[in-house]
Simulated scan of single mutants.
Amino acid sequence: MAAHTGGDIEDPALGILRRPDLVLVGPRKGAGAVMSDLGPGPDGRRCYRTRHDYVFGDKITVGEWSVGTSEFRRYRTS
């Protein structure tokens, strides 16, 4: 699952602001990543140039927000 805080949708009244940050949530392994600093890569193509990995339970920063991930749930294993 991914939550994108930017894109073509922007509605300040609803709190939706254009932020090119991306949060990756991996419920299978209980970990994820926050991708930021969108810009040209070494080959000139647009890419995320900063990645911060986290495990469920960490507090992460996404743009101006701090998000506690302790409530993120993992997939059940059989």
Rank of each mutant, 00 (worst) to 15 (best):
A33V: 10
I9P: 00
R73Q: 14
P42I: 02
E64N: 13
P27M: 05
T50Y: 00
D11T: 09
P12Y: 04
G41P: 01
A2M: 09
S78M: 06
R19V: 03
E71L: 11
G41K: 04
L38I: 03
R28W: 08
K59T: 15
V62R: 00
P42E: 15
A33F: 05
A33Y: 07
D11I: 11
D37R: 14
G39D: 04
L22I: 03
G7I: 12
S66V: 12
D37A: 15
M1H: 11
G44S: 06
D37Q: 13
G6P: 02
R19I: 05
F72G: 02
R51E: 12
H52K: 14
V34R: 01
P12N: 06
K29H: 06
G6V: 02
G7S: 10
S66G: 08
D58K: 04
K59N: 09
L38T: 00
H52C: 06
I60G: 03
R74S: 08
G15D: 06
P27N: 09
G26Q: 05
P12T: 07
T77F: 10
I9F: 14
V25S: 02
P20W: 12
D43P: 01
V34D: 00
E10N: 11
R74A: 06
K29F: 08
D21Q: 14
L24P: 00
D43E: 11
G30Y: 02
D8S: 14
R76Q: 09
G44I: 03
I60C: 04
H52R: 15
A13L: 11
V34Y: 01
A13W: 04
G6N: 04
G39T: 06
C47T: 15
S66Q: 15
G15K: 10
V67D: 02
D37K: 14
G44P: 04
G32R: 01
H52E: 12
A31T: 13
G39L: 05
S36L: 00
T77H: 09
W65F: 13
R73H: 05
G57M: 07
G63K: 01
I9T: 13
D21E: 15
R46Q: 11
G32H: 04
G30F: 03
L38M: 14
V67A: 09
T61F: 00
S70T: 09
S70G: 08
D11A: 14
P42C: 00
K59D: 12
L22F: 10
P42Q: 12
G41Y: 02
G63F: 00
W65I: 09
V23Q: 02
P20A: 12
G30E: 03
Y48Q: 02
S36H: 00
R51D: 00
G41R: 07
H52P: 00
R28L: 11
T77A: 09
T5H: 07
E64C: 04
P42L: 09
T61E: 14
T5S: 12
L22V: 05
P42T: 09
D58P: 05
M35Y: 13
D53M: 08
V25Y: 04
R73N: 03
L14K: 15
G15F: 07
F56Y: 11
H4S: 12
G41T: 04
G57P: 03
A31Q: 14
P27D: 06
V23G: 01
V67M: 11
V62T: 05
S70Y: 07
